[in-house]
Write a protein that binds this DNA or RNA. Structure first.
Lengths: 245, 245
DNA sequence: TCAAAAGTGTTCGTCCTACACCCATGA
DNA sequence: TCATGGGTGTAGGACGAACACTTTTGA
């Protein structure tokens, strides 16, 4: 908050020229692999490098609004059903942009379906890249992306985030694949199923509906995301002795 | 990140006059009650109202640096041993400040000992108030404070945050009081003790040391904060509804 | 009839809760 | 010797990991 109680110092402090931007770590699960939505820079600095989509706040919009707008402008992903947008943290180190002072509010955005991006707006092109194959990103976006991955992995344990990676109706196998993909570990199917169903408000069955997955095997029952946002009890990831990621 | 790839639009977007501030939700446990550090505003708007300490970013400092500086300037709490500072989230809604566009990076700060604040700097006065008795704060600080409380309560479950409320050497009874105070629930002492000691890296014993607490009773063994930042297994809070504690 | 994927059952150990009990100290 | 707070022990139930087994589909 502004310290109005700054008798003489007020003007000295208040109007330093800060540029405020948003950056988005947009993640989806596609073909059993985690993918990130990246845009190719067409301008200096970092020309030709991959970067997270994002851009400047307009005078009368919040960071959340700016994030949705930039996502639509730069990648064509507008009004995606089930887009889950959440603040990650704000990056404000001086020098993170070589040209000027930029404070950036970073978001994680989770999507089902991975629609192909349009690469429009300010970005030269936009593409889904498998997480880990993106090389070195522009600015401090490597760190932002890593922070986003850590956060999402941790939040799968105690929040009903995983459904944001799934279409409106999904099978428990698909939900399990989200966990296995983000965590990079295999889970026991019978136990996963029981835990999910025992967690109130996580998923709710779609009566009578079933879908064939993978072409073979028994059709799987379909579920919708429930109303709960927190998971009780949490769905803890398998213990790698003593210490987690 | 700035979209430099904004051929004509760059100047239109980049230099909107955003003021960037930090706000701090500084919490401590004192006499078995959670307290918040607040400053009284001496200027319009919200003159005389309590507000979270905070202020503008200087041109060459990060939000984290600004947070420490403002804490020292406005409350005299400089270089407090064991200060735990962590980003909460960023508040950017237009209109959250009646005079101009202000984007604020909010932090939670946890302290042991509750040293008396000096009320200097820009603030008319600074005081610890018991959480819940602070009335309506200036700006959107009510919401920031509520978000901070929620976050801290949740993080006590799976992070070793609680030690940040304790002095360098503390008893398990003091640590338990932190949990009970923040969560507002009583915990079973024998079980609490076993869980804490079973969680690797949470606390480590100070050999031979003991301290009398409350004037009576058996002197309690002393512990130091361990090296772990995450808690495995987590120390889940008792039953919200339906789930046995 | 086989492979593949969904779904159920069961065992067995671990952890957790609740509560009883002992210890050390000041008054 | 009592009140107070620290600390240990333990029985019983809940939970979870591991894995055997059944079901339903396409080829």
């Amino acid at each position: 908050m502004p310290r109005q109680d700054r008798p003489a110092g007020y003007d000295r402090h208040a109007y330093e020229p800060f540029a405020v931007t948003v950056d988005l770590a947009v993640l989806t699960v596609r073909d059993g692999a985690l993918h990130v939505l990246l845009v190719e820079r067409g301008q200096e600095p970092y020309t030709g490098r991959w970067a997270l989509p994002g851009g400047f706040l307009l005078p009368r919009e919040s960071a959340e609004t700016a994030a949705r707008r930039e996502l639509a402008e730069e990648t064509g992903l507008a009004d995606v059903a089930g887009l889950h947008l959440e603040q990650l943290r704000t990056y404000s180190e001086p020098g993170r942009d070589p040209r000027m002072r930029v404070v950036s509010v970073a978001f994680t955005a989770l999507l089902p379906n991975a629609p192909e991006p349009r690469g429009g707006g300010d970005a030269a092109q936009a593409r889904w890249l498998p997480y880990g194959t993106q090389g070195t990103l522009a600015f401090d976006h490597d760190r932002i992306l890593a922070d986003a991955h850590d956060r999402v992995g941790a939040q799968l344990e105690y929040r009903s985030l995983a459904t944001a990676f799934c279409p409106p109706e999904f099978t428990l196998g698909e939900l399990q694949q989200v966990y296995e993909t983000v965590w990079g570990t295999a889970l026991d199917r019978p136990n996963f199923r029981r835990k999910v169903l025992a967690t109130e408000g996580f998923v709710e069955p779609v009566p009578g509906a079933a879908r064939l997955t993978g072409g073979r095997g028994k059709p799987a029952a379909l579920y919708r995301a429930g109303t709960a946002t927190a998971l009780h009890p949490p769905l803890l990831r398998p213990s790698r002795e003593g210490r987690p990621a």
